[in-house]
Amino acid sequence: MSVIPSPSSGSARPRPSLPSSPHSSTPADGTSSSHSLVRKNSVHLQVESSQNQSRLGRRVTINMLPDGVLLDIFGCYVNDQNVRTSDWHTLLHVCQRWRYLTFASPLRLGLRLEYTGKKPMAAMLDVWPVLPIVITQSTWVGDHGMSCANNIVTALESEHSDHIHGIQLFDIPSSLLERVAAAMQKPFPELLDVLIWVTTSGAPVLSNSFLGGSAPNLRSLRLDRTPFPAMQKLLLSADELSDLGDN
């Protein structure tokens, strides 16, 4: 009678060993050192992957940017052609740091105060710091329009004219332009841009003493339906002029 040995009672078939290579040896547990190296590398990659995920998951906010980078971003915003002169006010309402940076860099950001004549200019300057002023208005109808017109004429006549960098008067009646022209018979040393559009013909002739006969910093001069025979004389002093238009 033959007895068939069970797997537990007999000797097991020897496990074939892996052939050794010149660069590896076979440890006692039957696994090569190359396999151990693979496992170690795998663990290392898993740890590194988890660290990268941790870095990627970290939140980056705009407040982490240095002041110089923030000012570059602010500059792109305020110098956009679709942004109004007063839209930089939005930066002041974000946080105290943005307000400080904005007011600390008026020249770099090209900040301007937009004056429309709704209030006397002195009242506006009591609220805002000393910044370049751009006078702009296009509404001259009714009591509100006349009030704005009177305040603008007064501002042009005042001692604050040294802060005026721009004058933009749209659709101005000929009668009001006569008052404006009379108020501008003096130098405006910081004036850069002038744009005057008259609604109808018959505008008064601008005299030789318009802008004091000299505008050394003027960059842009555009007059619509406004005769100015002495323009050539004025242009002789406008070395920075790059935009000229008249009809």
Rank of each mutant, 00 (worst) to 15 (best):
I172C: 05
R39M: 15
I73Y: 06
R222K: 08
V69A: 14
L191G: 04
L45E: 13
P106I: 12
N63D: 03
P14L: 14
T200V: 02
W140H: 05
P106E: 10
K119C: 10
L191W: 01
L109K: 10
S174I: 12
D87N: 10
R99Y: 09
L177G: 04
A104H: 13
T200N: 00
L37H: 01
S161A: 00
S9K: 15
E48A: 07
S50Y: 06
N208F: 13
L241Y: 11
I167H: 00
S21H: 07
G30A: 11
Y100T: 14
N217A: 05
I4Y: 14
L236P: 11
A181Q: 15
L234H: 10
D143G: 06
I164P: 03
N247P: 00
Q168T: 10
S25N: 03
M1S: 12
L177M: 13
G68A: 13
H165V: 08
Q96N: 09
I196S: 01
P216R: 08
S34Y: 11
L92M: 09
S105P: 11
L45T: 11
P14R: 14
S158I: 01
L18G: 03
S42F: 10
G213S: 09
H144F: 08
P22I: 03
N82M: 15
P106M: 14
V141L: 14
E240A: 03
S161V: 02
H144M: 10
R15V: 10
G30I: 07
A123L: 07
I73W: 04
S21L: 06
L236I: 09
P129K: 02
P227L: 04
L221N: 04
P19S: 01
P120A: 05
A230S: 14
A28H: 15
P66A: 06
S49R: 13
C76Q: 07
D67Q: 12
F188C: 02
Q51G: 01
I73H: 05
K119H: 09
T61Q: 01
S2V: 12
I167T: 00
L65T: 06
V78N: 05
G213T: 06
